[in-house]
Design a protein around this nucleic acid. Structure first.
Lengths: 220, 220
DNA sequence: AAGCATTGCATAGCAATGCCATGTAACGTA
DNA sequence: TACGTTACATGGCATTGCTATGCAATGCTT
């Protein structure tokens, strides 16, 4: 094989795209490579085109999300841990809203679809542990409960990220929905609320440097 | 005033955009006016540009949604009616997935933001009635419960519409989440499940002529 | 070590997109 | 009927993503 491909170029371009996304700058083929020294053809050799670049960016977003979820510590209270994953999910989305939007803009197209499932798997594991430790009913469905939590969280955050809802409603709705879902799965209502509320009190997501904008900016 | 503005042109363009959206055709300035006899300037006269056209299309989507929700009949069982609104919401989204995507693509920008709230108001009214008729706790929060139902439904449908989740999981997740939220609001678990399940059994959304596609097509 | 095939990528140009400056014609008002 | 205002058709512009072409760098082969 000739001229070994420089793997750094690929990473740098994805990184730069994510930065431009966070900076609300329009991510175009030419503006992306500008300043990197690379030419527009680099995007085609490494990604096959702009859709390929977006695919890579989305993948990067899901990788970061998984990293963040996997870093949530396991405590003695499994229900608290389930809620803590919700906090981490929200924090990740609010830290870079534009990336979150891009992730789900064409989420069906990913380089590694299984990579996106890994985040959900973390949540499923936490719910399963709650059941195993007796907090949920023996016939509770961890995948179903985790999926519904994820769906509700996504619905909430996708609207917050677009500026339809303010960020400060996230904890409230999240607590209520999580409590409702886990109580329906068998947890004691009072104990559940205490566990969930504690998780959200501990780590309210920081809006970050990249707050939601009022309208569709020039970027994606 | 000279040369009276033809209000039909506006409607026809919005209508055509919605049709092209449903047909998975790329909606571009030139392809939109092609065949209508109008020229590209018509879009600027009536909408000020493509963003304005999308704004009008989104508004049209929310108007249709409201129409559909308002048409849901009121029965003797208010909890059933709340669930029936969820069925109607899902049916509306699945009937024209591309329009649903467009609606929430920049939902913060609407011609009449209050128009989008009218749909939610219908749901809030149904929840409030459930509380007034004693199905929910006296201190239940209709706006909160309705909003969380809407958020969960939106999270689910936005992913279904993008082809991440198959349409056949909609009833299952919808029933479970609705039961969880309404039970948490005070309804009796068994009665709640019966009411909600009946609504979804009666009117399972038809995928329509416009099923979700596997990947980002040429259209929006 | 030399030659060569293969690959990375810089250049330049193409089609299509949204947008707008200009001109023209239609309509209401006087 | 004359006029001023408005709708809109035409043509051209900048920008977008994309690709045909050529060159140079690299590793395999002998």
């Amino acid at each position: 094989m000739p001229r070994t491909a420089d793997p750094d170029v690929r990473r740098r371009l994805v990184e730069r795209a994510a930065q431009m996304l966070a900076a609300r700058e329009p991510v175009t083929l030419r503006s992306l490579v500008e300043g990197t020294g690379a030419s527009t053809m680099a995007v085609y050799t490494h990604f096959g085109g702009m859709p390929g670049l977006w695919r890579a960016v989305r993948q990067e977003g899901f990788t970061r999300l998984h990293t963040r979820l996997a870093a949530v510590p396991r405590t003695a209270d499994p229900v608290h841990d389930v809620a803590a994953l919700g906090v981490a999910y929200a924090a990740n989305a609010l830290a870079s809203p534009a990336l979150y939007r891009a992730m789900f803009d064409a989420v069906a197209e990913l380089e590694d679809p299984a990579g996106a499932d890994r985040g959900l798997a973390v949540l499923v594991g936490a719910v399963a542990r709650a059941r195993e430790e007796g907090r949920l009913a023996a016939d509770a469905d961890p995948i179903g409960v985790a999926t519904r939590s994820w769906l509700a969280g996504h619905g909430l955050l996708s609207l917050v990220v677009q500026g339809v809802l303010p960020a400060d409603v996230v904890p409230g709705h999240s607590v209520e929905t999580t409590v409702a879902l886990l109580t329906a799965a068998g947890d004691d209502p009072a104990a559940c609320r205490a566990s969930v509320a504690r998780a959200w009190r501990a780590g309210v997501p920081d809006p970050g440097t990249d707050g939601p904008r009022g309208a569709g900016g020039p970027g994606l």
